[in-house]
C-alpha cells in the first residue's frame, strides 16, 4: 500500500504543475498596474503651461465636476493619434479635459497644439516626469477619469473611440 502512495502523489503533483502552466499560458505576462481601483488624486505644485505661473493641484480640480486628465507630449507618437479624439470629446462638453505636458520642450509643445488644436481646459507642465509618478503613470499617453477628487478609472496608452464610449457610460 505504502509503495503505491508515493508514485500516485508524484503523478498528482506533476499533474497540478501541468495544469498551472497550462493556465499560465493563456494570459499576457506584460504587467499593467491596476486600472480600476479608486484612488485619491495626488497633491502637487507645478506651473501653468502658457503663463508659467505656479499652480496648486487643489485649484485645478473642483469637487462636483468630471475631469479627464490627459498626459501628453509633443514627442510622443501615439499622442498625435489620440489627439483628434480629445478634440471631439472637448466639443461634446461632457467633461473638462486637463492636460499634463510630460517632459517636453515648451516650444515644440506649443507648435503641437497650434497644429492639432487645443482640447484642454487647462494645461500644467511636468518637466522631469515626477508628477506623472505621483499619479501612478509610467508612460505617455495616459488618461485619468476624475470625479470628486478621486481617480475613477485609468487608461494606459492612447484612447480610442471604444474607450471614449465606455467613458461616457461611466460618467452617467
Amino acid at each position: 500500500m505504502k509503495k503505491k502512495i508515493l508514485p500516485f502523489s508524484v503523478i498528482i503533483i506533476f499533474g497540478i504543475i501541468f495544469f498551472i502552466f497550462y493556465k499560465g499560458l493563456e494570459d499576457s505576462k506584460i504587467y499593467t498596474p491596476d486600472v480600476n481601483t479608486k484612488k485619491e488624486i495626488p497633491v502637487f505644485n507645478t506651473k501653468e503651461f502658457f503663463s508659467g505661473e505656479n499652480v496648486k493641484s487643489s485649484s485645478i480640480f473642483e469637487l462636483d465636476k468630471v475631469y479627464l486628465l490627459n498626459i501628453w507630449s509633443s514627442w510622443c507618437v501615439p499622442c498625435r493619434q489620440e489627439h483628434p479624439l480629445l478634440m471631439n470629446l472637448n466639443l461634446e462638453n461632457k467633461l473638462n479635459i486637463i492636460g499634463m505636458n510630460y517632459k517636453d520642450n515648451l516650444k515644440n509643445a506649443e507648435n503641437f497644439l497650434k497644429e492639432l488644436g487645443n482640447p484642454y481646459k487647462e494645461i500644467f507642465i511636468d518637466l522631469d516626469g515626477t508628477i506623472a509618478i505621483e499619479w501612478g503613470a509610467y508612460g505617455v499617453p495616459e488618461s485619468f477619469l476624475i470625479y470628486k477628487n478621486e481617480i475613477i478609472k485609468k487608461y494606459i496608452g492612447p484612447l480610442n473611440q471604444q474607450l471614449i464610449d465606455e467613458m461616457s457610460l461611466l460618467i452617467k
Binding site: K103, D128, G129, T130, I133, Y138, G139
Partner: peptide, 10 residues
C-alpha cells in the same frame, strides 16, 4: 527609460 529616470529623481 524616461520612467526610470523620473523615478531616480523622485
Amino acid at each position: 527609460s524616461e520612467f526610470a529616470n523620473s523615478i531616480k529623481i523622485i
